[in-house]
């Protein structure tokens, strides 16, 4: 059969070499060799935006992660849910294991970007960016991250997401490491009810990158006492964090209406964020407080109505 192979008429202004590593070790070796001139690519949605926006110049070497086996898919065991780093956001936002055992993550994945981007973007890319909207949700589910890193040999590391964010903040993050997967703990909800919510505010109503996000998860016993309270805030290009004083306000206590104003105030005091031309630090802090208070009020009231 005669083949008609045409050559591109317009040469790419920034051609680059695209590597197809067969395994983790090969991928990390290539990264080591080319350093800052190389980038791991998952869905490529964030990288492309960074190149086009001039935030990062286009890398000369792209290292595909989709050629490495076993980095995609969602599995359940007795105590855990395992999500491969290359799993697309679309799949995470449609998965029943995640909906049942990682409800805020499920919600977060359904609110990141638009459906067409979620068809390509991965959960691993979202986390590895260190500013993805999935991160506050993972903080309230006590998620841990599985990494492969390379020193004299390949090390497999399991790290709580809180600890990893501390490493990121301190600037000690390994740039050669590959995120392999995310592990969520299943939690027993016997004799108690789980309350979860995820709220996101952007610059307009339709899909848009976030300014502020808030994630909440707690158990409530039949007498209305909160336990295992986890609250996190993030959004924009800030590093997400747990809001410990807000958690302490609820932990072991019964819901009462004054909690709503107190928690809004505490959240706005404790949320460490930043100003940019679109929103001031104060606006973001106040918004985090309001999102948290409104989400808590709505969740409690819908629970009361269901009784």
């Amino acid at each position: 059969m005669e083949m008609n192979i045409e050559t591109s008429r317009i040469p790419d202004p920034f051609p680059c070499q695209v590597w197809e590593p067969a395994d983790m070790e090969e991928a990390m070796m290539i990264k080591r060799q080319y350093g800052a001139n190389a980038a791991f690519v998952a869905g490529g949605t964030l990288l492309r935006t960074q190149w086009e926006g001039g935030i990062v110049s286009k890398h000369e070497h792209l290292i595909r992660l989709d050629t490495i086996a076993d980095l995609r898919g969602i599995d359940e065991s007795d105590q855990h849910i395992h999500i491969g780093a290359l799993t697309r956001l679309r799949e995470c936002g449609a998965d029943m294991y995640i909906a049942n055992h990682g409800a805020t993550l499920y919600e977060a994945c359904r609110h990141i970007a638009a459906p067409s981007i979620r068809n390509q973007a991965t959960i691993g890319g979202n986390i590895a960016s260190a500013v993805g909207d999935a991160i506050p949700a993972l903080l309230v589910h006590n998620a841990s991250l599985h990494w492969a890193d390379i020193g004299s040999k390949v090390d497999l590391i399991q790290q709580d997401i809180v600890d990893w964010l501390d490493v990121v903040k301190s600037g000690r993050r390994s740039l050669d490491a590959i995120l392999m997967g995310i592990v969520l703990e299943k939690q027993s909800t016997e004799h108690q009810q789980e309350i979860t919510f995820f709220r996101k505010i952007g610059r307009r109503e339709a899909f848009t990158p976030s300014l502020v996000t808030v994630a909440f998860r707690a158990m409530v016993d039949p007498l209305g006492h909160f336990s295992q309270v986890r609250i996190a805030a993030g959004g924009g290009s800030g590093i997400a964090m747990r809001l410990s004083r807000c958690e302490q306000l609820l932990e072991g206590n019964r819901y009462h209406a004054e909690m709503i104003t107190s928690i809004a105030l505490l959240a706005s005091e404790d949320f460490v964020t930043y100003s940019d031309p679109f929103a001031s630090e104060q606006y973001r802090q106040q918004t985090a407080g309001n999102l948290l208070a409104a989400g808590l009020w709505e969740s409690i009231h819908s629970q009361i109505e269901r009784r």
Binding site: N4, I5, E6, S8, F14, V18
Partner: peptide, 10 residues
Amino acid sequence: RELQIDPSRR
């Protein structure tokens, strides 16, 4: 369709 192109071309 077949083309000779840079694999990172949009």
